[in-house]
Lab assay of single mutants.
Amino acid sequence: YYKILGVDKNASEDEIKKAYRKRALMHHPDRHSGASAEVQKEEEKKFKEVGEAFTILSDPKKKTRYD
């Protein structure tokens, strides 16, 4: 999950949140509406992965379990 968000394992809550926003905007489906179906599908997959990574890393209990 750290790799997906592009943050270090010791990243602060704020750094995780900023990285999530950056990656979410980058891969958001609306940004790729004019792209081919294949690209849209890949970006949607990445967008979901970013969301999942943020869900785990932003919750202290889940993050501890993950680490």
Results as ranks from 00 to 15, higher is better:
Asp59Glu: 02
Ala19Phe: 00
Asp59Asn: 08
Ser58Tyr: 01
Lys45Gly: 04
Phe54Pro: 14
Ser36Gly: 11
Val7Ile: 13
Ile16Val: 05
Tyr2Phe: 09
Lys41Ser: 10
Arg65Gln: 15
Lys41Phe: 02
Asn10Arg: 06
Pro60Asn: 11
Ala53Ile: 01
Gly34Gln: 14
Val39Ser: 08
Arg31Ile: 06
Met26Trp: 03
Glu52Pro: 02
Ser12Leu: 01
His28Asp: 07
Arg23Trp: 07
Gly6Asp: 08
Ala24Ile: 11
Lys63Ser: 08
Gln40Thr: 09
Lys17Val: 12
Tyr2Cys: 06
Lys18Met: 10
Glu13Met: 14
Lys22Pro: 04
Ile56Lys: 09
Leu25Val: 10
Lys61Asn: 14
Lys63Pro: 03
Lys46Ala: 11
Ser36Val: 07
Lys9Asp: 12
Lys22Leu: 12
Arg31Tyr: 04
Val50Ile: 10
Arg21Cys: 11
Leu57Gly: 08
Arg23Cys: 12
Glu49Met: 11
Ala19Gln: 06
Glu43Phe: 00
His28Val: 04
Arg65Phe: 12
Asp8Met: 02
Lys17Met: 14
Gly6Thr: 03
Glu15Cys: 02
Glu43Gly: 01
Tyr20Ile: 09
Glu43Val: 04
Ala24Tyr: 14
Arg23Leu: 15
Lys61Phe: 10
Glu38Ala: 13
Glu52Phe: 00
His27Gln: 08
Ile16Cys: 01
Leu5Glu: 11
Lys3Met: 08
Glu15Tyr: 00
Phe47Glu: 09
Ser33Pro: 04
His32Ser: 05
Ala19Tyr: 00
Ser33Thr: 13
Glu44Trp: 11
His27Asp: 05
His27Pro: 04
Lys41Asn: 07
Glu15Phe: 00
Phe47Tyr: 14
Met26Val: 09
Val50Gln: 05
Lys62Trp: 04
Ala11Arg: 01
Phe54Ile: 06
Met26Asp: 14
Lys18Ala: 15
Lys3Arg: 10
Lys18Ile: 12
Asp67Gly: 06
Ile56Ala: 11
Glu13Trp: 11
Gly6Ser: 03
Ala19Asn: 05
Glu52Arg: 10
Tyr1Ser: 03
Arg65Leu: 14
Ile4Trp: 03
Asp67Asn: 01
Gln40Leu: 11
Arg23Lys: 14
Ala53Lys: 03
Thr64Asn: 14
Tyr66Gly: 11
Glu15Ser: 04
Lys46Pro: 01
Glu13His: 09
Glu43Pro: 02
His28Tyr: 00
Ser58His: 04
Ser12Lys: 11
Lys63Gln: 05
Gln40Trp: 04
Ile4Met: 07
Lys9Gln: 13
His27Cys: 07
Tyr20Ala: 11
Lys45Phe: 02
Asp59Met: 00
Lys62Ser: 11
Asp8Ala: 11
Pro29Glu: 07
Thr64Gln: 15
Ala37Glu: 12
Ser58Asn: 12
Met26Cys: 07
Gln40Val: 15
Phe54Glu: 10
Leu25Cys: 10
Ala11Asn: 01
Phe54Thr: 09
Tyr66Ile: 10
Gly34Asp: 10
Pro29Leu: 01
Lys45Leu: 11
Glu38Tyr: 03
Glu42Ala: 09
Glu43Leu: 01
Lys22His: 12
Lys62Met: 11
Leu5Gly: 03
Tyr20Trp: 13
Glu13Ile: 15
Lys45Trp: 00
Asp67Cys: 00
Lys61Cys: 12
Glu42Ile: 09
Asp30Asn: 10
Thr55Glu: 13
Glu49Asn: 05
Lys46Ser: 04
Pro60Asp: 13
Arg23Ile: 12
Phe47Asn: 10
Arg65Ile: 10
Tyr66Asp: 12
Gly51Arg: 15
Glu13Gln: 14
Ala35Tyr: 04
Lys9Ser: 14
Lys41Asp: 07
Arg23His: 14
Gln40Pro: 05
Met26Tyr: 05
Glu44Ile: 08
Leu5Met: 09
Glu43Ser: 10
Glu15Ile: 05
Leu57Val: 06
Lys45Ser: 10
Asp30Phe: 05
Gly51Leu: 13
Lys3Ile: 01
Lys9Phe: 05
Arg65Gly: 14
Asn10Tyr: 07
Lys3Glu: 14
Tyr66Ala: 14
Arg21Tyr: 14
Ala53Gly: 07
Ala37Ile: 11
Thr55Arg: 15
Ala35Cys: 06
Glu44Pro: 06
Ala19His: 04
Lys61His: 13
Val7Leu: 12
Glu44Phe: 09
Ser12Gln: 09
Lys61Trp: 09
His27Glu: 03
Glu13Val: 15
Lys18Val: 10
Ile16Gln: 06
Val39Ala: 09
Glu43Trp: 00
His28Ser: 07
Lys61Leu: 12
Tyr66Asn: 07
Lys9Asn: 11
Ile16Lys: 03
Glu13Lys: 12
Lys41His: 03
Leu5Asn: 01
Ala53Cys: 00
Lys63Met: 06
Tyr66Ser: 11
Lys48Cys: 12
Leu57Thr: 03
His32Gln: 03
Ala19Leu: 01
Asn10Gln: 04
Leu25Trp: 14
Ala24His: 08
Phe54Tyr: 15
Tyr1Ile: 02
Lys18Asp: 15
Ile56Tyr: 09
Ala37Thr: 11
Glu13Asp: 12
Lys41Ala: 12
Glu15Gln: 09
Asp30Pro: 04
Glu49Trp: 03
Asp8Trp: 00
Lys48Gln: 12
His32Cys: 04
Arg23Gln: 13
Gly51His: 15
Ser12Asp: 03
Glu43Met: 09
His28Lys: 06
Arg65Trp: 15
Ile16Trp: 00
Asp30Leu: 09
Pro60Ile: 10
Phe54Ser: 11
Gln40Cys: 06
Lys63Thr: 05
Leu5Phe: 05
Ala11Pro: 03
Ser58Thr: 14
His28Gly: 06
Lys22Val: 14
Lys17Trp: 09
Tyr1Phe: 00
Lys17Asn: 10
Lys62Ile: 08
Asn10Pro: 05
Glu52Cys: 02
Gly51Ile: 15
Lys61Arg: 06
Glu38Met: 03
Glu43Ala: 10
Glu52Asp: 10
Lys63Leu: 04
Ile16Ser: 02
His32Arg: 03
Val39Trp: 02
Gly51Pro: 03
Tyr1His: 03
Arg23Tyr: 03
Ser58Met: 10
Arg23Thr: 11
Val50Thr: 05
Ser12Ala: 04
Lys46Leu: 10
Lys22Arg: 13
Asp14Pro: 03
Glu44Gly: 09
Arg21Gly: 12
Tyr66Phe: 09
Asp59Val: 00
Ser12Thr: 14
Ala37Gln: 13
Ile56Thr: 14
Ser36Arg: 02
Pro29His: 05
Lys9His: 11
Lys17Phe: 11
His27Tyr: 05
Tyr1Asp: 11
Thr55Trp: 05
Gly34Leu: 10
Glu43Asn: 07
Ala35Lys: 15
His32Gly: 12
Ile4Asp: 14
Tyr2Leu: 02
Asp59Thr: 02
His28Ile: 04
Lys46Val: 02
Ala37His: 13
Arg65Asn: 14
Ile16Asp: 03
Arg21Ser: 13
Arg21Glu: 15
Glu52Met: 09
Lys3Asp: 15
Leu5Cys: 02
Asp67Ser: 06
Tyr2Pro: 03
Ser33Gly: 10
Glu38Ser: 12
Ala11Tyr: 00
Lys22Phe: 08
Gly34Tyr: 06
Gly51Cys: 13
Ser36Leu: 06
Ile16Tyr: 01
Leu25Ile: 12
Ser12Arg: 05
Asp8Ser: 12
Lys22Asn: 14
Lys46Arg: 10
Thr55Phe: 01
Ser36Phe: 02
Val7Phe: 01
Glu15Met: 06
Asp14Tyr: 07
Lys41Thr: 03
Ala19Arg: 00
Asp59Tyr: 00
Asn10Trp: 03
Leu5Arg: 01
Lys63Ala: 05
Asn10Thr: 10
Leu5Ile: 01
Asp14Ser: 10
Lys41Glu: 07
Lys48Thr: 10
Arg65Ala: 15
Asn10Met: 06
Asp30Ser: 12
Thr64Ala: 15
Lys41Cys: 05
Lys17Pro: 02
Glu42Arg: 12
Tyr20Lys: 07
Gly6Met: 02
Tyr66His: 03
Pro29Trp: 02
Met26Phe: 04
Ser58Leu: 04
Tyr2Lys: 02
Gly6Glu: 08
Val39Ile: 09
Gln40Glu: 00
Leu57Met: 02
Ile4Gly: 08
Leu5Val: 06
Gly51Trp: 13
Lys61Ile: 14
Val39Asn: 04
Lys61Gly: 09
His27Val: 01
Gly51Val: 15
Ser58Lys: 10
Arg65Val: 15
Ile56Met: 10
Ala11Ile: 00
Phe47Ile: 04
Ala35Ser: 11
Ala19Val: 02
Ile4His: 08
Met26Arg: 10
Lys41Tyr: 00
Val7Gln: 04
Ser58Val: 06
Arg23Phe: 10
Lys61Ser: 12
Ala19Asp: 03
Lys48Arg: 13
Asp67His: 00
Ser12Val: 01
Glu38Gly: 06
Ser36Asp: 07
Asp14Leu: 08
Lys22Cys: 12
Gln40Arg: 13
Thr55Ile: 00
Glu49Gly: 03
Lys62Ala: 11
Ala11Lys: 01
Glu38His: 04
Tyr20Asn: 00
Lys3Ala: 12
Lys61Val: 13
Glu49Val: 03
Val7Gly: 06
Lys41Trp: 05
Gly6Lys: 00
Gly6Asn: 03
Lys61Thr: 14
His32Leu: 06
Met26Pro: 05
Asp59Phe: 01
Asp8His: 10
Lys62Arg: 11
Val7Trp: 00
Asp67Val: 05
Leu57Tyr: 01
Lys3Phe: 02
Ala24Leu: 12
Thr64Arg: 15
Lys17Gln: 14
Lys61Ala: 12
Tyr2Trp: 01
Thr55His: 14
Thr64Phe: 14
Leu25Glu: 14
Glu42Gly: 09
Val50Met: 05
Tyr20Asp: 12
Leu5Lys: 06
Val39Gly: 04
Glu38Asn: 05
Glu15Leu: 00
Arg65Thr: 15
Lys61Gln: 15
Lys48Glu: 04
Asp14Val: 09
